[in-house]
């Protein structure tokens, strides 16, 4: 479904993505892991055309995305930080996105799920961080897109909403959607991910199924497996301590 070929991206002198070669097939949830500044967000953004790589090509469903915009109709994207036109009301924002995509989607279902009803008439500048994130999720998930990209979706969510989100993601998976998820919360990834991509300093250090990662590193917990990828002598250190 998605193919990255020789992607290079640097901001000034700082090289963020170094020769990324990646193929993500349709179906299932792929988790994009890596420490801060490893290039996760940049990689996701370049898929959406928000960041323009200096070299390489990106294909979405077999077609190059450079200079195109219509392919985004098939992607639901949740950005890391959500900010909106502050003077709009929530229901106006929803209408606006519907308007832009010329699609109705299923807002009501999600409004009920996230209990956003009391906030529909509130202006966005008056919303709390958690509510904003819920609105953000709503906007991302309300359309029936074959690909869903979530950049740190759990930020600011209360435990109830978190559970609801996980359920929602599972549902989408079951409906045959492709999901790409950037997260720090390993429990979420462990629970939901089929495949894992591990990114470090702009390079892919691991790409495979969650099972194979755990097996390869001989760990049962993802956190530990990751730590071993980062530092091959991790196990040793732990033994000594």
């Amino acid at each position: 479904m998605i193919r990255f070929e020789h992607i290079h991206k640097s901001f000034g002198k700082q090289e963020v993505l170094k020769d990324i070669e990646l193929h993500i097939p349709a179906g299932g949830l792929t988790a994009l892991l890596g420490p801060n500044g490893s290039g996760k967000t940049t990689l996701v953004k370049s898929l959406l055309g928000l960041v323009i790589p200096q070299q390489g090509h990106i294909y979405f469903e077999g077609k190059p995305i450079a200079g195109k915009w219509d392919y985004r109709r098939h992607i639901g994207y949740l950005p890391q930080i959500a900010r909106f036109p502050e003077n709009l009301r929530v229901h106006e924002l929803i209408r606006m996105i519907q308007d832009i995509r010329s699609e109705q989607g299923r807002p009501d279902e999600l409004i009920a799920l996230f209990e956003l009803n009391p906030f529909l008439n509130a202006r966005l500048r008056n919303l709390s961080g958690g509510t904003r994130q819920k609105v953000n999720l709503l906007l991302t998930l309300m359309f029936d897109t074959p690909l869903i990209v979530l950049d740190e979706p759990t930020v600011g969510l209360d435990p109830v909403a978190l559970v609801q989100l996980k359920n929602l993601i599972s549902q989408e998976k079951e409906r045959g959607k492709t999901l790409l998820l950037c997260s720090h919360i390993m429990s979420v990834v462990e629970e939901l991910a089929d495949d894992v991509i591990f990114l470090l300093e702009g390079r892919i250090h691991f790409h495979g199924s969650l099972q194979s990662l755990l097996q390869e590193q001989g760990e049962t917990r993802l956190e530990h497996a990751i730590a071993r990828v980062l530092k091959p002598d991790f196990h040793l250190q732990r033994m000594e301590s």
Partner: peptide, 15 residues
Amino acid sequence: SREFVELLLAQPIRR
């Protein structure tokens, strides 16, 4: 409107 623009940029619409 930076972040709002990001939201918009992820939509099927020309820059």
